[in-house]
Design a binder for these strands. Structure first.
Length: 271
DNA sequence: AAAAGCCCCTGGATGC
DNA sequence: TGCATCCAGGGGCTTT
């Protein structure tokens, strides 16, 4: 579910509310991707400093240590002074003096991991390979071009891999490539300089607009305050196979790349 | 080093 | 409220 915009929308929806809170208790449901990495009771009494985002990870900084959260494919958070009774897919809950934070994740591809610091082994492994933040100043076209040059794989798959640039998932990869007029199957290394510049701009544009729209809610995504996104109504190609391109009218096509579907316009994205 | 496939898991949609 | 099949916002791990 959640790509960078959804994760950032989630962060913004509870970061201020939880900052400064003292942890009272922590509750776990079924196993997520990794074990928590500490005894839940150990965290009682610690204070939440703030919430950051790195790629699709949320980092909850404590006065000692931090929690890494990932929403996987189907995860969403809720934060409220009082939450309703927990359901079968609620697998993590943090009760604090300022409210409770709960992760609902039916497929359990998500993760909640405690780390002493960002350099702890697992945290380092997860965060260490992440590419540049696309909405930061660090993401410039020059650097992007350099990163793409050494990758011969299809540009769509390089975007999804997240080691050149983070946060672009399956929806926004298709959308950004459409905006840039680039066929998803083209080798990343073979993209000309001007096309990389267009793609760089397209990624920032699409992620920025999705963020403004509260992200995309395909099934059940909502922010931690329950707001659903509406960017799914603005997609140009994603999940629009067979429908007319909103620019040229030609039927949108789809294909499989690395067991994920990709959507594109055969006319607007000729190469 | 990079690329390709596999797998984790549940549920909804579609087809028979 | 049958059963089988396919598909879904991700990404770490193993194998080539």
């Amino acid at each position: 579910m959640p790509e960078l915009p959804e994760v950032e929308v989630t962060r913004l929806s509870f970061a201020d509310k939880i900052a400064g809170a003292k942890l009272l208790s922590l509750h776990l449901g079924k196993p997520l991707r990794w074990p928590l990495g500490c005894v839940p009771a150990q965290l009682a009494g610690r204070t939440v400093r703030g919430v950051r985002r790195r790629g699709k990870y949320l980092l909850i900084d404590l006065d000692q240590g931090l929690l890494l959260l990932h929403l996987g494919m189907s995860g969403s958070l809720s934060f409220a002074a009082r939450l309703p009774a927990s359901g079968k897919h609620d697998h993590f809950e943090l009760v604090t003096t300022q409210g409770s934070l709960r992760l609902n994740d039916p497929r359990r591809f998500g993760a909640v991991v405690y780390a002493q610091t960002e350099d702890a082994p697992l945290a380092r492994k997860l965060l260490g390979r992440l590419g540049v933040e696309p909405l930061s100043e660090d993401f410039d076209a020059e650097l992007f071009h350099t990163g793409l040059k050494r990758r011969k794989a299809a540009i769509k798959q390089v975007l999804l891999a997240g080691d050149v640039v983070v946060g672009v998932g399956n929806i926004y990869a298709s959308e950004a490539l459409f905006l840039a007029g680039i066929r998803p199957t083209v080798s990343a290394a073979r993209l000309s300089r001007p096309r990389v510049v267009r793609l760089h701009a397209a990624i920032r544009d699409i992620l920025g607009r999705a963020l403004t729209s509260g992200g995309s809610t395909l099934r059940n995504f909502s922010s931690a305050s329950g707001q659903k996104g509406h960017f799914q109504f603005e997609t140009m190609v994603y999940a629009r196979e067979g429908q007319p391109c909103r620019v040229c009218g030609k039927a949108i096509k789809s294909l499989r790349q690395g067991q994920r579907s990709t959507f594109y316009c055969p006319a607007c994205q000729k190469v």
